[in-house]
């Protein structure tokens, strides 16, 4: 069982991911609606895994990823991207993202990535 933080500006997407994770026995310890919030929450909660949306207001996913990696070089971050975000995702991989998933995703895909990363 992994402790997971979900970062996405859409409550709907957070709900979808959260449902998938909790149904599969993982615990969602935090939800953040933008990058800033995720950077604030990360150090106190130290989640095993972070689902990070790419496009968000106030702080983009890659920037938040950078800040999180600075705090914890072992951080495991999975980027949630869409088709057409290839370059951002690559940037994220360079920064240190462990993996990425592409919307729309189904439970199998999410769990596959989680199982590989955790």
């Amino acid at each position: 069982m992994a402790k997971v933080m979900i970062v996405d500006d859409a409550a709907f997407m957070r709900m979808v991911i959260k449902d998938i994770l909790t149904k599969n026995g993982h615990e969602v310890v935090a939800e953040a609606s933008d990058g800033t919030e995720s950077v604030e929450k990360y150090p106190e909660l130290k989640p095993d895994l972070v689902f990070m949306d790419v496009v968000m207001p106030t702080m983009e996913g890659t920037e938040a990823l950078k800040k999180i990696m600075d705090m914890d070089s072992e951080a495991k971050v999975i980027m949630c991207s869409s088709i057409g975000q290839q370059s951002v995702v690559k940037e994220a991989i360079d920064i240190g993202a462990q993996d990425f998933i592409v919307k729309p995703f189904d439970a199998d895909k999410v769990m596959e990535v989680v199982n590989r990363v955790v």
Binding site: D9, A10, F12, M13, V16, V55, P57, S82, K103, P104
Partner: peptide
């Protein structure tokens, strides 16, 4: 930028719902 983000978020949600 706001429109880009909103459209993007909507896209992600809609495709997830099919």
């Amino acid at each position: 930028n706001i429109m880009f983000r909103s459209a993007h978020t909507l896209k992600g949600m809609a495709s997830t719902m099919g």
